[in-house]
Simulated scan of single mutants.
Amino acid sequence: MRKGMVGLVTVLFCGALLCGGCAKKEMVKAEEATVPPVTTEKPAATPSKPAPKEETVKEQPVQEAPTATGESTVKEQPTVIAATELEKVLFDFDSYTLSQTARDTLSKDAQWLEKNKQTKVQIEGHCDERGSDEYNLALGENRAKAAMKYLISLGVPASQLSVISFGKERPADPGHDEAAWAKNRRAEFVILK
């Protein structure tokens, strides 16, 4: 009788563990994940003047901790200018190979950089939303490096260039379709002064 009772309790305990078990992750259907957010904003009116060629974004100085003498030091951040003179290059899905169009664009960018040798440029690698964060960061870096290597092969000094990857963190187009993804697979240029 006692063995039967221990066996019954054991079976009930195991059954409770199987039924209650670990919490399961909630799965989202693919159709639900691709629904874009609904906005109530009205489209902006078409501007009557053309947009300025160059947009300057100045960053504020960063206040650092006081030194041992009680004085605080201020570290200046570089001024970042959107590189409207330098054209971005686009990439195919899951690729960092430069197309002929991308090489032609980079050739024009190299000519501009040759005329502006004092200018430091950061090449940003970007991806579309598909793929893991880690994979897209690596792919974005490879895209930026491919653009940098091609510019160097055209005579741009390596000291004038740097690379950074944003993966899928900064989409150019927030859409969830092939047209938006094609715009997001890119390498862009930011001028550092």
Rank of each mutant, 00 (worst) to 15 (best):
E87S: 15
F166E: 09
Y135S: 11
D94H: 12
L137I: 10
L161G: 12
K145V: 13
K117Y: 04
G167E: 14
V80S: 13
L161Q: 05
S153R: 11
F166Y: 12
V89W: 08
S132K: 14
L90K: 12
A172G: 11
L98Y: 15
K115V: 07
E134W: 12
G155W: 02
Y150T: 02
A147Y: 00
R130M: 02
L86S: 07
K117D: 15
I164N: 07
I152T: 15
L106P: 09
D92R: 08
K149C: 13
G155V: 00
D109F: 00
I81P: 09
K120T: 10
Q100S: 08
P174E: 07
S153E: 06
Y135T: 10
E114S: 05
T101W: 05
P174W: 00
K145Y: 09
E129R: 08
A138T: 07
I123M: 11
C127K: 06
N142F: 01
E124T: 06
S132H: 13
A144G: 09
N116H: 14
L98I: 15
Q100W: 06
V121N: 04
S99L: 03
A138F: 04
G125T: 03
R103S: 11
D109H: 11
D92H: 11
S162I: 02
D94A: 10
R170L: 10
H126P: 02
I123A: 10
S132E: 05
K145M: 03
S95L: 04
A110I: 00
E141S: 12
V121H: 07
K145G: 03
A144F: 00
L86E: 01
R143G: 01
S132P: 11
A146H: 06
W112S: 09
E169F: 07
L151R: 08
G140Q: 01
V156P: 08
K117L: 14
L86M: 09
P157K: 13
Q111R: 10
M148V: 03
N116D: 03
L139A: 09
I152V: 11
H126I: 08
D133E: 09
L151T: 03
L161F: 00
